[in-house]
């Protein structure tokens, strides 16, 4: 009988308490990433011009918005709720909003670096920073894969 009791036992040793809140539609952050992809490509197409720098500043501001207010309170999220979600079927599962929010913070860092580089005339440095953000946005938009989230543990391993 002890075997039966141990079966199905889920021990949670020091694991962070699971957020039991309802969660968000995983396609919301995916939509956000797709829009971000378009903006990042537009930045790369206009890098070195005033327009490219303005777009970079705008995208950096959007990332900061998502990282501070939360991913459900961004303009992307409003557009998703108003225009996209009504056309989709109900999500098969809901997700924790913390990972995409963290990813917004990572995106903010990369676009901030790019903005400083563009302002200082370092166009290539800025392009590479935007290119790295574009890799992450594409992975998110196409595969729902959160690169910033994956790097979190690697960074922790090296810094602690």
């Amino acid at each position: 009988m002890s075997t039966q009791q141990s079966a199905g036992r889920v021990a949670s040793a020091g694991a962070r308490a699971e957020t039991t809140q309802a969660g968000i539609d995983p396609r919301g952050p995916q939509f956000n990433a797709a829009v971000t992809m378009v903006v990042l490509v537009a930045i790369l197409a206009t890098a070195g011009t005033a327009l490219g720098t303005v777009l970079t500043a705008a995208q950096a501001a959007l990332f900061v918005w998502g990282a501070t207010a939360g991913v459900t309170r961004t303009p992307h999220a409003r557009a998703f709720k108003a225009l996209v979600r009504p056309r989709l079927s109900a999500p098969d599962h809901l997700e924790d909003p913390a990972p995409p929010r963290f990813a917004q913070a990572v995106g903010a860092v990369f676009t901030a670096v790019a903005l400083v580089a563009f302002l200082a005339g370092g166009t290539v440095v800025g392009e590479i920073a935007i290119g790295l953000a574009l890799v992450a946005a594409t992975l998110n938009a196409v595969f729902r894969f959160c690169l910033g989230c994956e790097l979190y543990l690697v960074i922790k391993r090296f810094t602690h």
Binding site: L40, A45, A47, G48, I128, G131, L134, T138
Partner: peptide, 9 residues
């Protein structure tokens, strides 16, 4: 070069 960076990314 920006468009090449975009394509590569």
């Amino acid at each position: 070069t920006g468009l090449w960076v975009a394509a590569a990314a």
